[in-house]
Measured scan of single mutants.
Amino acid sequence: MAAGGDHGSPDSYRSPLASRYASPEMCFVFSDRYKFRTWRQLWLWLAEAEQTLGLPITDEQIQEMKSNLENIDFKMAAEEEKRLRHDVMAHVHTFGHCCPKAAGIIHLGATSCYVGDNTDLIILRNALDLLLPKLARVISRLADFAKERASLPTLGFTHFQPAQLTTVGKRCCLWIQDLCMDLQNLKRVRDDLRFRGVKGTTGTQASFLQLFEGDDHKVEQLDKMVTEKAGFKRAFIITGQTYTRKVDIEVLSVLASLGASVHKICTDIRLLANLKEMEEPFEKQQIGSSAMPYKRNPMRSERCCSLARHLMTLVMDPLQTASVQWFERTLDDSANRRICLAEAFLTADTILNTLQNISEGLVVYPKVIERRIRQELPFMATENIIMAMVKAGGSRQDCHEKIRVLSQQAASVVKQEGGDNDLIERIQVDAYFSPIHSQLDHLLDPSSFTGRASQQVQRFLEEEVYPLLKPYESVMKVKAELCL
Rank of each mutant, 00 (worst) to 15 (best):
A2R: 14
A3G: 10
G4V: 15
G8A: 15
G8Y: 15
P10N: 15
S15L: 14
L17E: 00
L17S: 13
Y21D: 00
S23P: 05
P24W: 11
S31K: 05
R33V: 13
Y34M: 08
R40T: 02
L44W: 04
A49I: 04
G54V: 02
D59N: 13
Q63H: 07
L69W: 12
I72R: 01
D73Q: 08
L84M: 06
L84G: 07
D87C: 00
A90L: 00
S112N: 03
G116F: 05
D117A: 01
A127R: 00
L131N: 07
K134R: 07
K134F: 07
A136D: 00
R141I: 15
K147Q: 13
E148S: 11
F157D: 00
T158A: 00
F160H: 05
Q161H: 00
P162Q: 11
Q164N: 08
V168T: 08
L179A: 10
C180T: 10
D182C: 00
R188G: 06
D191K: 06
R194A: 07
F195Q: 00
V198R: 02
G200V: 02
S207E: 01
Q210M: 06
F212E: 07
G214Q: 11
D215M: 13
D215T: 06
V226G: 02
A230I: 04
K233E: 09
T239C: 14
G240T: 09
Y243M: 08
T244F: 05
K246M: 02
S257E: 09
A260V: 04
A260L: 01
S261N: 03
D268V: 06
A273E: 14
N274W: 06
K276T: 05
K284D: 12
Q286C: 03
I287S: 03
S289Q: 09
S290Q: 05
N297H: 02
M299Q: 14
R300Y: 09
S306A: 09
M312F: 07
S323G: 10
S323Q: 07
D332S: 05
E343R: 09
A348K: 01
T350Y: 12
T350Q: 10
P366K: 08
I369A: 14
R372C: 06
P378W: 02
I386D: 02
V390K: 01
I403A: 04
R404G: 06
A410I: 05
A411S: 06
S412K: 12
E425R: 12
I427M: 13
V429C: 15
Y432D: 10
S448R: 14
F449N: 04
S454G: 13
V457E: 03
V457R: 05
R459T: 12
L461H: 01
E463L: 10
Y466F: 12
P467A: 10
L469Y: 06
K477R: 14
K479W: 15
E481Y: 12
L482R: 01
